[in-house]
């Protein structure tokens, strides 16, 4: 049995407000990876959830799907993360008509969840955890919900509202046209 101690460098609890958000590159489709730094200049909402298809997750992600226009008002990017693989994510997103990316923290399993301090070693899944990261890549709010409880969205919206006004401005044009 693999006795590797993956936990030695991992934080014991969810990374708190004020911490630099660990960057990562995770696949959202078989040939497309996404990282926090891709969204530099925009707030990011990271939603760790235990598994595709489980009932509470479904309700939670359906709620966030419904709220995408509100997140966009804050210029925020929303991403779900679980240890499921990309094909599972694709099937799940299609079935539930989710319009935001689901990232596969699949190999090495849960490595990003470990870095954020939200991996459940006993079950081999992530906590049900929320992170709001500002445009400079610093965590501004984090919350770990009891695993069976849908945390809703009010905490996320409050955290986005609490960001400085410049965070919520329209996305800066990184590729201005010459002239």
């Amino acid at each position: 049995m693999d006795r590797t101690d993956y936990t030695s460098r991992a934080p014991a609890a969810a990374l708190a407000a004020g911490t630099k958000a660990p960057d990562f590159a995770l696949n959202t489709t078989p040939d497309q990876a996404v990282s926090v730094s891709d969204f530099s200049g925009r707030p990011v909402v990271l939603v760790f959830y235990p598994a595709d298809w489980s009932p509470v997750c479904g309700d939670q992600l359906a709620l966030y799907n419904e709220l995408l226009p509100e997140f966009h008002r804050f210029n925020a990017a929303l991403m779900g993360i679980s240890v499921d693989g990309v094909w599972c994510h694709l099937a799940y997103a299609r079935d539930r008509k989710l319009k935001f990316p689901l990232l596969a923290d699949f190999e090495p399993k849960g490595s990003v969840a470990r870095e954020y301090g939200v991996y459940r070693h006993r079950e081999g899944v992530t906590e049900r955890a929320l992170f709001v990261i500002d445009s400079g890549g610093t965590i501004r709010w984090s919350y770990v919900s009891p695993i069976g409880v849908n945390p809703g969205a009010d905490g996320i919206l409050q955290a986005l509202e609490a960001l400085p006004a410049k965070e919520k401005a329209a996305c800066p044009d990184k590729h201005p046209q010459p002239g």
Partner: peptide
């Protein structure tokens, strides 16, 4: 109604 519910912690 929906958004007011969200702000009140309605999650389903």
């Amino acid at each position: 109604d929906f958004l007011g519910g969200v702000r009140s912690g309605v999650n389903g």
